[in-house]
C-alpha cells in the first residue's frame, strides 16, 4: 500500500470522525420523537418533522438564551473588529520598538488559562456591576477573540501593498481617505471573516459565560446547565443549534482561515 492510500484512508477516517456525529445530531434534530428514541437508528432521517425543534424552542429560557448569545456575540464581533483592526494595521504598517514582542504578547494572552482568571474576574465584575450582564461576557469574549482579530487583520493588511496607499496619498488623499478608498475595500472580505470568526468564538464559548452569568445565560451556558437533566430530543436540538452557526460561518470564511494557516490560497 502506498503512503498516498494510507493518507487517504486516514483523511477519510478523520472526516467521518467529525462528520458522523454532526450528521446524527442534524438528522435527529429534524426527526420526530419516536425516531430520536429508536434503536438502531437508520442512516437517513426517517420521519422528517419539526417536532423536536419546536419542543426545543418551547422550553422556557431557550429564547432568552439565544437572544443573549446573539447580543454577546454581536458585541464581541464589534469590539474585536474595532480594536483588533487598528492594532493589526499598526503591526502591518509601522515599525515601532517592540513590535515583535507585542506580536508574541498578543499570542501569550491565549496561553493564559481562563480558569485562573475566572474567579478574580467574577469578583471584579460584581464590583463593577458587570456580573451577569451580556456586556460583561462580551468583554471576556473580546479578550479571547482579540488575539486572532489582531493577527488575522495584520496579515490581511500586510497583504495589501503599502504602495497602493502611497499612490493614493500622491493622488491627493490624506491618510484616512486613502484608508477608506483603497485599503478598506480591499480588506473588507477579510475583515468580514475576522468579524465572523469573533462571532463564532463567542457563540461557542461556554466556560466564561457559565461563570459570569446566573440569569443572563448565553445559549451554551444555558444548555450546559440544562443538558444533563433534559430529554433526549432537547439535547439533539440544542447540540444542533450550537454547532450549526459555527459550521456555516467557518465554511463561509474558510478561504481566509486557509491563508491564515498558511495553506495555499484557493
Amino acid at each position: 500500500m502506498s503512503t498516498r492510500t494510507i493518507y487517504l484512508a486516514l483523511a477519510v477516517l478523520l472526516a467521518l470522525w467529525v462528520v458522523v456525529p454532526i450528521f446524527l445530531i442534524a438528522t435527529l434534530a429534524f426527526s420526530d420523537r419516536a425516531s430520536v428514541f429508536a434503536w438502531p437508528k437508520g442512516i437517513l432521517p426517517q420521519h422528517f418533522s419539526l417536532e423536536t425543534i419546536s419542543f426545543f424552542f418551547g422550553v422556557a429560557g431557550v429564547g432568552k438564551a439565544i437572544g443573549n448569545s446573539l447580543i454577546v456575540a454581536g458585541l464581541t464581533l464589534l469590539f474585536a473588529v474595532l480594536l483588533g483592526a487598528p492594532a493589526g494595521y499598526a503591526l502591518a504598517r509601522y515599525r515601532f520598538a517592540g513590535a515583535d514582542a507585542y506580536r508574541i504578547l498578543i499570542l501569550l494572552t491565549r496561553a493564559f488559562p481562563l480558569a485562573i482568571l475566572a474567579i478574580p474576574l467574577a469578583v471584579r465584575f460584581i464590583n463593577l456591576g458587570l456580573y451577569d450582564t451580556p456586556l460583561g461576557v462580551a468583554l471576556v469574549h473580546t479578550a479571547l477573540a482579540l488575539p486572532f482579530a489582531v493577527l488575522v487583520t495584520s496579515s490581511l493588511f500586510l497583504g495589501i501593498p503599502r504602495e497602493l496607499e502611497e499612490a493614493a496619498w500622491t493622488l491627493g488623499c490624506n491618510r484616512i481617505q486613502a484608508f477608506l478608498k483603497v485599503v478598506l475595500p480591499l480588506a473588507l472580505p477579510g475583515l468580514a471573516a475576522t468579524a465572523i470568526f469573533a462571532f463564532v468564538i463567542s457563540w461557542n464559548e461556554v466556560f466564561a459565560a457559565t461563570l459570569l452569568t446566573l440569569r443572563e445565560r448565553t445559549l451554551p451556558a444555558f444548555l450546559l446547565t440544562a443538558l444533563n437533566d433534559s430529554p433526549l430530543p432537547f439535547r439533539f436540538a440544542g447540540g444542533f443549534f450550537l454547532i450549526v452557526p459555527a459550521l456555516v460561518f467557518i465554511f463561509v470564511i474558510r478561504r481566509y482561515l486557509f491563508t491564515l494557516w498558511g495553506i495555499a490560497n484557493r
Partner: peptide
C-alpha cells in the same frame, strides 16, 4: 509637507494600480 500637498504625481516601480 505630506505627499498630497506637494502637487506631484508618481509612477511607482511596481505600478501600484488599485486592484479594486
Amino acid at each position: 509637507l505630506p505627499p498630497r500637498s506637494r502637487k506631484i504625481a508618481m509612477v511607482f516601480q511596481n505600478y501600484a494600480v488599485f486592484p479594486h
